[in-house]
Design a protein around this nucleic acid. Structure first.
Lengths: 337, 337
DNA sequence: TTGTATGCGTTATCAG
DNA sequence: CTGATAACGCATACAA
């Protein structure tokens, strides 16, 4: 049914080893042979079997991506971007979705990587999962950690949200805001905590006292952000601006503000984080900070495969939109051309 | 470094073939051996190498998912759901992202599936790509087509949007709407065209003449939906309701309506399709039709692996929300518990 | 520059 | 019920 390397060799009139050389890009092959082999491969539509190569060479051309079973658009965009990058460099992406057990508290579950990938890419919250990292280290599996905070086994694609968050805060100051609230991430020990640090440091440098009442922690979801907003807007000296740690949360804040009859940004300005697609879907669209997910994906895949380089520079950028500027424009940007 | 089946056999004091039998769930093994083997496997943290099994047995335990390089939340949700289902039934998911060349017009590109998956799952627009289907058929690869329209090689998970679209239209009628516009999919030859059929048939059954001016085709994007809405609202006898073929398009319509000073739904009611997360992020949230993506994913994986059955029933459901009812509630539903 | 023997880790076949 | 042996498709080491 499907052709093997021997079929190609027979058709081309050479030994199968010569075909193997051709496939692996070795240069020392008689030109006449090259052509015959090329023709035979095309003719038979030959494709080397991944499994056989893997067994013989200890190289799988497979990257495993470990992702949480949670439908954040961040996760989804990362999956797609990494899959596309893998394909670009001739690798295959195998997705391992880790659910429940792995997501709560310190876990001791064992991860099963029977595909023997050449490298494992971890995206939040897994880059800082010590149990997982230990297991991968034991198996000697190379690891690339996207947006890890701490040090740990493997290569880290590091992102620091603090400076760009300070830029956003400066924008708030420029618009005259002094009472700025934050809807913060639930767990201080995650990478996203640098957003909180940026928030606090900006306040400090601006000489504004930090008010604990203005910082509400809640899970990364719309519903919880709605509640946090209720709380913030009920404050005696309510904030005139809200910075949410994700775009989804920002949309929750805006929904509540609108529901309560506040105008955005006239009564309360709102900003998010990520530049997720949903930040552009609202009216007014949400001011946010662009996470260059495609660049992060490429950097990770380059690090994982040593191919397709050079790795791009990873630069976050402030995207000013109507929810803080008052512009009544619709955001027409798209992620895909 | 990593244990092989022989290491386990040695540790357990049996032949490696007996271990193989144990792994493959064969029943005729002496109980005393079973226990020793189990212990050895645990002790050595043994995991069978996928590649070796595949080579020896012609079974890969791999499912390939073919997905377009386009960041629709539909695609993303499907990817994640299918990956999770695969894991549930002990299979591995390999994602093949097909971009540019495969997406425009009749293509003749060859797909490379060197991983030799046991089955290939296709999601729109690929289930109706004749070139792709022919190639897969040539290779004798089982195929599961999610939301295919036409017949074709492989197993089809069929979805008919027409009846549920008629329900939505009935809702519009109940609310007193007679001038109902549709922002329709770009290409009539896709599965989503059944939404147009539902729209037209509902009008017909209600005795309302179809007005071509009220049906605007455009790509599945916010920006194009904004333009379509501009057009519709500029009509002399403008529509009082707009049905968009996707939630993203509905959000585009709502953004434009708000920008122009219309109230939703008082001046113009708006509905979408998919029940994508973004349909809940707006205020008011968007009335839409729930695509049971998790169920579709499970059905596809059950069909692909013959495991994890029975396949769930696939039922679309109308979700009434503020953008048509006028309820001033925020939608707090989440896709993940 | 090219070909031969060997082995990767597992399952299949068939003998005991 | 259990175990030797071959085979899967390819790359590696070595020989020619």
């Amino acid at each position: 049914m499907v052709a093997t390397i021997k079929d190609v060799a027979t058709a081309a009139g050479v030994s199968f080893k010569t075909v193997s050389r051709f496939i692996n890009g070795e240069t020392n092959i008689r030109p006449a042979y090259r052509e015959r082999i090329e023709a035979a491969i095309r003719e038979l539509n030959y494709q080397p079997t991944l499994a056989a190569r893997q067994l013989a060479s200890q190289k799988s051309f497979i990257i495993s991506l470990v992702v949480a079973d949670v439908l954040f658009s961040y996760n989804a965009r990362m999956m797609l971007a990494i899959a596309a990058e893998c394909r670009r460099v001739g690798y295959h992406l195998m997705t391992e979705v880790l659910g429940g057990e792995f997501l709560q508290g310190p876990n001791t579950n064992r991860i099963n990587l029977s595909a023997r990938p050449d490298c494992v890419i971890l995206i939040p919250p897994f880059p800082d999962d010590v149990n997982l990292l230990r297991q991968l280290e034991e198996q000697g599996l190379p690891v690339v950690r996207i947006a890890a905070i701490g040090d740990g086994y493997g290569t880290t694609i590091r992102i620091d949200d603090e400076p760009v968050t300070m830029e956003l805060m400066q924008h708030f100051f420029d618009m005259g805001h002094r009472r700025i609230a934050m809807i913060a991430p639930p767990l201080p020990e995650r990478a996203s905590e640098s957003r909180v640090r940026g928030y606090r440091r900006a306040l400090e440098e601006a000489g504004i006292a930090f008010d604990p009442a203005l910082l509400v922690r809640c899970p990364f979801s719309l519903a919880t952000a709605v509640d946090a907003t209720t709380e913030l807007l009920a404050l005696p000296d309510r904030p005139t601006a809200i910075f949410a740690a994700s775009d989804t949360m920002a949309l929750g804040a805006m929904a509540r503000a609108h529901q309560l009859g506040y105008r955005v940004p006239d009564d309360v300005a709102i900003a998010g984080f990520d530049d997720a697609p949903e930040s552009r879907y609202s009216f007014p669209p949400i001011t946010t900070i662009r996470q260059p997910i495609e660049d992060m994906a490429r950097a990770a895949v380059v690090a994982a495969t040593k191919r397709g380089g050079p790795a791009p520079e990873i630069r976050q950028r402030l995207k000013l939109r109507g929810s803080t500027t008052g512009d009544r424009m619709i955001c027409r940007e798209t992620n895909f051309a």
